[in-house]
């Protein structure tokens, strides 16, 4: 009787999701595996053999990975500082972290256009300081997409890490210190290993976010530096190549699931160890 209730309560939500998300996904991607009646992967082998598409795929991976690494490097010390601050300061810092997260990605990318543009803040500053003779092309580069993506997703990394670091008992750090570890050593030997679950969550969120973001690569990379998500839009809306877009959609879903699966399995392994 209890179980019947549970299924009944979940039914409306599940039906909507299955009918308008899962079925549409299947109806788009299943045909890409069919050649007449037989199963085929030729659309996918063609995709990766085509140097233009291959390049876009590799660029998407590269941007996402570099974004994850930079977010981790910037996020870990910041999150540690936030988690160890007193209640009032922590509240302010968390609000400062969440605010960008709730701000429209168009606005946040636009900010970087004003900074990186040909007549942007950075070029002007460099010109004024006589460090460069003429404006450099900073926009519509992979670098611009990476900076924009880090800007977009760093708050996610910080928030995931703070959640875990807050729960690391302060006494563990003190215990390490009392046993002769300097503050830096105590951080690397105790705090960092114990933050791994938060780091993993953060990496998954940042990677999947960066790999599927549309606004930032569109505004900061344009048609020069396409990624999978801008490619899918171009194929549908500009080229009308829906079959091609479905192939890209499959690749994006599979990449996202593979990365999540791998990282989560890693996390489970670490958990077994007793953390």
């Amino acid at each position: 009787m209890k179980k019947k209730w549970a299924y009944l309560l979940m039914a409306p939500g599940l039906i909507v999701i299955v009918a308008f998300l899962i079925i549409p996904i299947l109806s788009s991607i299943l045909p890409t595996f069919h050649d007449g009646d037989s199963l085929t992967f030729s659309s996918y082998t063609d995709f990766f053999k085509d140097s233009y598409y291959n390049q876009i795929f590799m660029r998407t991976l590269r941007i996402s990975i570099i974004t994850v690494v930079i977010c981790a490097i910037l996020g870990v010390p910041t999150a540690y500082f936030v988690s160890k601050s007193n209640k009032k300061i922590r509240g302010i810092l968390i609000a400062c972290t969440i605010f960008p997260l709730l701000t429209n990605s168009v606005i946040r990318s636009f900010a970087w256009i004003t900074i990186l543009g040909r007549n942007g803040v950075l070029n002007n500053a460099l010109l004024t300081l006589n460090l460069i003779a003429e404006p450099k092309r900073l926009l519509y580069t992979e670098g611009a997409i990476i900076v924009g993506s880090v800007y977009l997703f760093l708050p996610l990394m910080i928030v995931s890490l703070v959640g875990v670091m807050e729960n690391i008992e302060g006494e563990l750090f003190e215990a390490a210190e009392s046993l002769g570890a300097s503050k830096i050593k105590a951080f690397f030997k105790v705090i960092l290993p114990l933050s791994v679950p938060g780091l993993i969550v953060g990496c998954v969120l940042v990677f999947t976010g960066a790999a599927s973001a549309y606004t930032t690569p569109q505004l900061l990379g344009g048609n020069r530096k396409m990624v999978l998500s801008t490619l899918i839009y171009q194929q549908t809306m500009t080229l009308g190549d829906w079959y091609g877009a479905s192939v890209v959609a499959t690749i994006m879903i599979v990449t996202s699931i593979l990365v999540m699966g791998t990282i989560n399995r890693l996390a489970a392994k670490l958990n077994e160890r007793g953390v």
């Binding site: 999701i17 599927s212 959609a249």
Partner: peptide, 21 residues
């Protein structure tokens, strides 16, 4: 299943819903 809308990349959701719906 409930979290799948967050797992599937946004552009993919947009694209398949556009095509289907």
């Amino acid at each position: 299943f409930f979290f799948s809308p967050k797992i599937v990349p946004g552009v993919v959701t947009g694209f398949v819903m556009f095509q289907f719906i």
